[in-house]
Every structure is written in structure tokens, then in C-alpha cells.
Design a binder for these strands. Structure first.
Lengths: 223, 223
DNA sequence: AAAGACGAATGCGCATTCTGATTGTCGAGG
DNA sequence: CCTCGACAATCAGAATGCGCATTCGTCTTT
């Protein structure tokens, strides 16, 4: 984990760096707004500690520029001023957390840990099978990057198959998972929907295992 | 957006609720730990304001129980100024932010905005979707730079959709986040407001996913 | 009093789903 | 290699129910 400290008070900067390094982080240091802004843009940090009152460029401005450039790393703001309007400005500019001077260095450490932990939990849930991508969070699917237009049942079917990739899924199993009530087992709806799905995502992806059911798998891949 | 306030000081509770409602949030109020814990478990809030010192059940305990039950909504903790060890305890229990008493209500408002924004994965206070810009700070929206004249419910609807861009949002979800407690679920209000919104921002932006709900997305872009 | 916002009710149009019949395919046994 | 039976795929029409526009009455705001 790599952290950037932007703080003009050399003493405080050094002190923070020490504690963070001790905690196992890699630390870069900047002593004014311009230097800090440049580093934050150029290097991939896992978190930034940013003072508000800085020479060369104000902390809020630095933050706004980063956010404007699409930088999303967590930023912890430091300020000596006890003015609540500064806090509000910092938060609205896209700060993730805030500590008022004077503070305990241990508190900063705890907050950095929390920020990094929180940022890590941002993994998008996506299942990929060959050219097909299933975005379970957004209820979307794409083939070769092109959005698929699926109906609700088609999506449920695809979703179940992709969640059980490589396995043979019986028709009974599919019926039981796609319909909550008891449903006419003698119907061939599943086959109909398999057909429609194949038409939309390509025939090679859903293999039919005669007498057993269906299996989804990336093509050109024996087992 | 729907917010829960857990605070035993009736005066402060009311004050917070007022400001939040004015800002367009739906607010539920609890006055002790047990009531708060129950509500937070039962209803889907977008954020919670939680006091540490509470009758019936301590704030930290409430938070720990929620996290233990898999609740992940952002929680803003209120704490006495000098007890910084409480802050660290709160953070470790899974709090997302804290404010020390006494505070300015505007600061709480700004922090709540930030928490909700961040939970949706947006760094800055502005969310953009094609020609539509949502200014969460000023509770305003524009299309192609032109200010929209939205009613309070229309704005809440647009806001929720934009905070969940790319995701399919069900009618139930929308009702639960736009209205408090009991509301006639068999009504078609959401559809009506979707219609009114589309009339103002254009039809292409809100896609309807039959049988599932609605999805907001920049047009001409499958992803 | 007037205007606007909100939400309930109605009916229509159409995408989606289901059904049943038909056609197509696989594989074992003669 | 051919045939036959079982299973799978396809198709079209029918039925279903979802979403939308619209209207209207109530409530709030000014």
C-alpha cells in the first residue's frame, strides 16, 4: 500500500511518514500544493493525506483537480483551522475523511486503515464466460462488449447458467430456480428460452447434454 | 434517499430531522438504542446518524449488531468532542464517519451527502449522466446546462436513480427509499413520476426493464 | 381563491411468456 | 449403414399481465 502525504509543515510531515512507514506503508512526501498535485496525478496511491493550508496551491483546489481528472483514491484532509465551513468545502470537493488539528497520529493511522479497507470493497461483481460478461449488480449482460437486450426470464436463465459454469444443469433444476410456485413440469418453456438465449449470445456457449440438461462453457475448451 | 436518526436528545433529533427533510431526504427517527437497532434492521436506509451515548442500547453495540447482520449502509457517528478513543472504537466497529459534538448541522448535512455519494461510488459532489448533471450539494439538476424545474418528489426520484446509475432499480426499492414507513405499495405512483421525469429530461435516459424496474444510463452506450 | 403538486383509478397497447404441434437431431441396435 | 425411438429445437398463435398515458379528486402552498 502506497500513501502520499501533502503537508507543508516539515515536522508534522516527517512525523506522519514515520508512523505510516512503521505500520508497513510505502510513503511519498510532498511539501506544497503543486508538487502534491503532480504526484497524485502521476502515481497510483492507495490513499492521500492532504493538508488544506498549503503554499503554491490550496488543498481544496488540489483535491478538486484530482476529482475533475477522474482520480478516485481516498483522500484524508487535514486542517488547522477550526472553521466548519472549510470542512464542508472539503467534503463537497470529494474528500473521504477529515481530521482537525491538533490530532493524535494514531487516529490518522486508524482512519487511513479504514479508508483503504473501504476502498477495497469496491469490486464489481462480474462473471465472465468467453465473450459473455454478466454484471450481476446491474442486471446487465454484454457479448463482446455489446449490450444484450434480455427479457427478465432470459436474464434469470443466463444468470443461473453462468453461476454454475462448467456444470451440467438439469431442466428440473432450472425450473425450480426460475419459478417460485409449482409450475407445470410438462411444459417445454426452458427449451424455448434456451433457444432464445442461444440466438442472442451465440450457439456455442450453451452445450446441450442429452438426457441430462445444459452446460455453459467458454468454447474451444474441452472440459 | 431515506435516513435514520438515532439520538436520545429530542431537541437535537428534531433539529437534525428538520434540516435533512428540508434538503429533500426522507427521515425516520428513533430515540433509544433498541428502537434504532430495530428500525435499522427492518428498513432499507441510505444512511444512518447514530449517537454513541444512548439509553437501552449503546450506539457502538447497535452498530456492531448491524454489521454482524450484514448491514452495510453508511453510518455517521455523533460523539462528544474530547473522547477521541470513542472515535477509534466507532471506526473499528464499522462506522463510516463521525462528527464531534457540538457541531453545526450543516456539517452533518455535508457529511451525509458525502457518505451517500461515496456509497454509490462517486467521488465529487456532482453526478453526470449524459446531458444530465445532478448537483447533490445544491439539490439542483441541469440538462445540457439548462436548469431543470423539478418538484421535490421528481428530484428525489432522479437523485436515487443517478446514485445507482447503470443498475436496475425496482419499483419496490424506489418506494422504500422515497417514502417513509407505510405507503400504499399497490399504487402506481412511481410509474407516474417516471413518466413526469421523462417528460422533463428526455425519454432516452431512463430505460425500463420490464418485470424488474428502471435503469438510468447515458444513451447510445451499451455499458 | 388560485395554482401547483401529489397520488388513485381507468383503460389501452404491446412486450413477454406459455402452449401445443411440428420439425429436427442424436444414438443405439439390428 | 440404416432405422427407429427418444429427446431436443423451433415456430406461431393465444393468453397474460406489465407499463404508460391520462384524468380526476385531494391536499398543500401562496
Amino acid at each position: 500500500m502506497r500513501i502520499l502525504i501533502v503537508e507543508d509543515d516539515a515536522n508534522l510531515n516527517r512525523q506522519l511518514a514515520e508512523v505510516l512507514k512503521e505500520a508497513g506503508y510505502v510513503v511519498d512526501q510532498a511539501y506544497d500544493g503543486e508538487e502534491g498535485h503532480y504526484l497524485g496525478d502521476a502515481e497510483p496511491y492507495d490513499a492521500v493525506i492532504l493538508d488544506i493550508g498549503l503554499p503554491a496551491m490550496d488543498g481544496i483546489t488540489v483535491l478538486e483537480k484530482w476529482r475533475g481528472d477522474g482520480k478516485t483514491m481516498p483522500v484524508l484532509i487535514l486542517t488547522a483551522r477550526d472553521r466548519w465551513s472549510d470542512k464542508v468545502a472539503g467534503i463537497d470537493a470529494g474528500a473521504d475523511d477529515y481530521v482537525a488539528k491538533p490530532f493524535h497520529v494514531e487516529e490518522v493511522l486508524a482512519r487511513i486503515r479504514a479508508l483503504i479497507r473501504r476502498a477495497a470493497g469496491h469490486a464489481s461483481s462480474e462473471i465472465v464466460c468467453g465473450p459473455v460478461r454478466l454484471d450481476t449488480k446491474g442486471s446487465k449482460a454484454t457479448v463482446d462488449g455489446v449490450a444484450l437486450k434480455l427479457t427478465s426470464h432470459e436474464f434469470r436463465l443466463l444468470s443461473y447458467l453462468m453461476h454454475h459454469m462448467g456444470q451440467v444443469v438439469s431442466r428440473t433444476e432450472l425450473v425450480e430456480h426460475m419459478y417460485d410456485q409449482d409450475f407445470d413440469r410438462d411444459s417445454n418453456t426452458i427449451e424455448v428460452f434456451i433457444g432464445r438465449l442461444r440466438k442472442k449470445i451465440g450457439n456455442d456457449l450453451i452445450e446441450t447434454v442429452r438426457g441430462l440438461g445444459y452446460r455453459m462453457q467458454a468454447p474451444g475448451n474441452g472440459n
